[in-house]
Structures are given as C-alpha cells and as structure tokens.
Amino acid sequence: MSTTATATTPYNYAYLDEQTKRMIRRAILKAIAIPGYQVPFASREMPMPYGWGTGGVQVTASIIGPTDTLKVIDQGSDDTTNAVSIRKFFQKTAAVAVTTSTSAATIIQTRHRIPETPLTAGQVLVFQVPTPEPLRFLEPRETETRKMHALAEYGLMHVKLYEDIAKHGRIAKTYDYPTMVAGRYLMAPSPTPKFDNPKMHRSPALQLFGAGREKRIYAVPPHTDVVSLDFDDYPFEVNKFDRPCALCGAENVYLDEVILDDRGGRMFVCSDTDHCETRRAEGHRGEILGQEETRA
C-alpha cells in the first residue's frame, strides 16, 4: 500500500488521504474480527454521488495497492456506466491493473452479484451496500436495533419471513435475503440476489461490505458460515431458472432477461458477462448462438 501521490493526479494514492485509509482499515479489521457486525466509520465524500457505491469505493481505496488487479461489476456486468466509472477512477487514482476476468482479479468490487466463477483464497470481494441494517424496515429505532444485535434477538426477522409466507405462500424475498453470519450476527447481503447467498457460505475469499451513506462496514472472513434464514417447513431456496443461458448454454447460473425486439422477442442470458464470455471462448454454445452457427 503506497503512500506516494502519483504524478498524474493531484490526489493521494487511491484518492483518500492516508489518515482516512488508516481509519477505514481499522474499521475493516474490527469487522473481520467480529464477522457480520456492522462497524461504524467516518464515511468521506467521494467524487461520485451516494448510490454509486461510495462505501465500496472507500473500502477498495483503503485496501488497494499497485500490485493489485481490480475487477468492477454492476449487476454482474463489467460494462455498465457505474462499473466503468469506478474502474476508471481506480485506474486514474491508484494506477492499478484492471481486468474483467474473475480469476485474474485480486480485488473485485461489486454491486448486486457474486461472480459465477468460484472465488479463491487471497481474493477480496468488496460489496457496495445501500442498506446495511437488516432490521431497519421492521424496527426503525437505531437504539433498539443495536440492542437486538447485541442480544442476538432476531425473532422479528422471522416475523417478516412469516408474513411473506402468509401473504404469498412462500418467502417472497429474492434479494437482500437475510443471513446469519458465524451463527451470531444477522446480516443483510443487500442488494445481492438470494441466488448468490450460498456463494458467501464458507467462501475462501474475504468478503467486505461498505455502506457509504449509512457509514457502516462489515465483513465475512474466509471460510465463515453464512446461513440464510428460513423455516423448517419452508426451507431456503435459490432463485430457479427453467432454462440455460441462451448465449453460452450455462445451467444453474443467474440469468437476466434481454429484450430482443419490440415484438416481444426476448432471451435469458448470464448476468455474469465474464462468465458467459469465458464459456463461449471455450466453445460452449447456447440456443441462439447455436442456431446462428448452423445458419452460417
């Protein structure tokens, strides 16, 4: 972690000054020591609006160094405006190598998705979190939610799941699905789809969560239990897709719907664009590409 300002910018390395980075690193270390516990930190103004991942950006800025390789994804894609601007930000301020390849990255900053390619030891996944407090919409009083965490009183979260089943016949929550971390702290994986919850469980990678507006950092250290809440008779289930990716034929991956034309034509493709491209490069073909190839 370099302390030198780069010649090309007037900013300190990775934009934040060293004192701020030390403060954030202390919060990260505390978060790692108490898995799932929300550590308050003095969130700084970043040159991008809240909702653009300022919490994740501050976490990444505090841990990144010149030898790192950064990947940034938004809804699984490396190419959205948000992902591109954050990637450029670190290229400019931290002179860091960037990649779209999950396996080549040392730090992956994400909003929404966890890559399909399994993460490995030594990698760090940084989540941009809008709403870190899983109990917020059930109990608006901060003093009370803090007490509930301190005493591990999480019955209210099950009341919410009960309400879902009573109303919809199943637990309707499809993202930000509540989890228990290391059997102790209730954690919001906001806004990650529940499809990715099992990927958090005992992951060999370090998972860090930064909420800029709410000024909270929390963490799941490598190989930590992350268990999705459920009922014995309504067990947790991931989102199911009844078809493979139209482009690469991958099954059991998270799919996005893509509108093809204004006559109702549509297809379902991997939301993880790197995963899809890698598979196609390896020769996998989905329904649509398969058809094109036979025509060609």
Binding site: G155, L156, V159, Y162, D233
Partner: peptide, 18 residues
Amino acid sequence: SAGGNVGERLMAVGSRHY
C-alpha cells in the same frame, strides 16, 4: 398480521416451523 403478532413471541424463543 394478527397471526404474525401472535407468533412473534414463539419465533423470538426459537420456533422455526411455520
């Protein structure tokens, strides 16, 4: 819901069968 209101204490003490 009324059911959720009555069930809350049960869930608070660990009932996990809907």
